[in-house]
Amino acid sequence: MKILYFYPENPLSFSQGNNSRALSLLHYFKNRSIYIDLVGEKSSEFGEDAIDDLKNEGLIKNGYLLKKEKKSSNIIKYYLNYSFPRKINSKFKDFDRTKFGYKEQFAKIVKNTEYDIILISYVYWSSLLDNVTKGSNTKWIVDTHDFLTSQFQTNKKFALDRYFKREINLMKKFDNVWVISNEENYLFSQFINNPVSLITHGLPNNIETSSKTEKTIDVVYVASENFHNIKAANWFFKEVYPLLSPDIKITVVGKIGNHIPKFENVENLILVKDLNEVYKKSKVTICPMLSGTGVKIKVIESLSHGIPVVCNERGVDGLVNKTNNGCLTTNDSFLFSDYISKLLNDAEFYNQNHLEAKRFFEDNFDSKKTYKILDSIFKVN
């Protein structure tokens, strides 16, 4: 079996939770000895050195990076194949992230190798297949990652019916639609006739090894710098942080650190080589999400180490159980700070939530369970 997997960003970068999902899929393919070629989008953080790293770790066979072509390279092709079509379909531009030359480059990669499966990440990259002739034995799969219509609702020209219909129509070109949460599974399956598969974010069980590591970090906060996280960080450091003891050691991981003022007890780590090493040293995780959709990968990562999570209501989106899952949920800043303080100072309370996190993770997100679902899709014995 040969699979071509499109994922735009560097899976080895721990700056965003979605990268963790991509990396976990690559580890599955490696574990099952499945041939994988990866296609990404060239950027300052995703270059040939990252492709070499993925090859050296045995995660991919070949790697390709799509590069935006210059308008001057072919004026006629630019206007006929790229500029004019985008103007005609301008109301749907949010659902197409391809740049000039991407579709042709992708089609060339597909043409050079006979793939059994083409796996595309995110619906707004589905147009990469526009120039691809589908083989009779080839299957197309989309890993949705999220409910995109909700992400666009702040746009000036947003119209729920038009956006949702577009998202569903794009999914219909695929033989299988992957979702990461039960809510999205229910929603999309109402409108799509082809199979919709719930592929949870499976992770290795790190609970035992984490329990043996000295805890030098009281609170860890992992986030990228998207709109939702910036709003969440502003809320936490304005409303919750002043209520906490200045003796609490907080470590912030990810580009969200670029948007946080300097505090004596807050350490900012923009980039880390191994996020698991940070989790192992941490007592409590926070996920102050006020908006956004889909499962929060950082929550599952925390649970995989048996670490209790303090979060807002959006932090438990996509989880099967909203309670008794290792997450303490509130939108009240005072209660949010109280939860953190009690976890750090009440050993019995901490252990209770640690055990709930452990049970919930093992029942729902252990990679062994996710692998079984993927095995059935890829017909792996």
Rank of each mutant, 00 (worst) to 15 (best):
52 D>Y: 07
34 I>P: 01
26 L>A: 06
38 L>M: 12
134 K>P: 02
154 T>R: 01
36 I>K: 04
99 K>I: 05
27 H>Y: 15
70 K>E: 15
117 I>N: 02
87 K>P: 07
53 D>G: 01
71 K>V: 13
134 K>L: 09
63 G>W: 09
55 K>V: 09
71 K>Q: 09
23 L>A: 02
118 I>H: 00
50 A>K: 09
131 N>R: 04
114 E>H: 12
101 G>Y: 00
140 W>E: 03
61 K>W: 08
140 W>K: 04
131 N>F: 07
140 W>Y: 15
61 K>L: 10
87 K>F: 12
52 D>I: 04
123 V>M: 06
78 Y>E: 04
96 D>M: 06
91 K>C: 02
142 V>P: 01
58 G>E: 08
61 K>V: 14
156 K>L: 15
106 F>V: 07
50 A>L: 05
33 S>C: 11
24 S>N: 06
141 I>M: 10
125 W>F: 15
130 D>G: 08
149 T>Q: 06
42 K>Q: 13
126 S>I: 12
37 D>S: 02
110 V>K: 00
101 G>H: 01
69 E>Q: 11
116 D>E: 12
53 D>I: 02
156 K>H: 12
76 I>T: 07
155 N>R: 15
63 G>Q: 11
22 A>P: 06
51 I>D: 11
23 L>K: 01
97 R>I: 07
126 S>D: 02
68 K>Q: 12
62 N>R: 09
82 Y>V: 04
39 V>N: 02
160 L>G: 03
124 Y>S: 09
65 L>Q: 08
91 K>A: 07
32 R>D: 04
94 D>L: 13
115 Y>I: 13
98 T>R: 01
40 G>Y: 01
141 I>S: 02
158 F>G: 00
34 I>T: 09
66 L>C: 07
115 Y>M: 13
145 H>S: 09
144 T>C: 05
96 D>A: 06
129 L>Q: 00
50 A>M: 08
128 L>T: 07
162 R>W: 08
124 Y>P: 06
157 K>D: 15
47 G>L: 08
126 S>Y: 00
155 N>Y: 15
83 S>L: 15
162 R>F: 13
25 L>P: 00
32 R>T: 10
137 N>F: 06
98 T>E: 03
138 T>V: 12
102 Y>Q: 08
34 I>K: 06
100 F>Q: 10
105 Q>S: 06
24 S>T: 03
51 I>G: 08
73 S>L: 04
107 A>W: 00
60 I>G: 00
29 F>I: 12
122 Y>M: 13
99 K>F: 09
53 D>L: 10
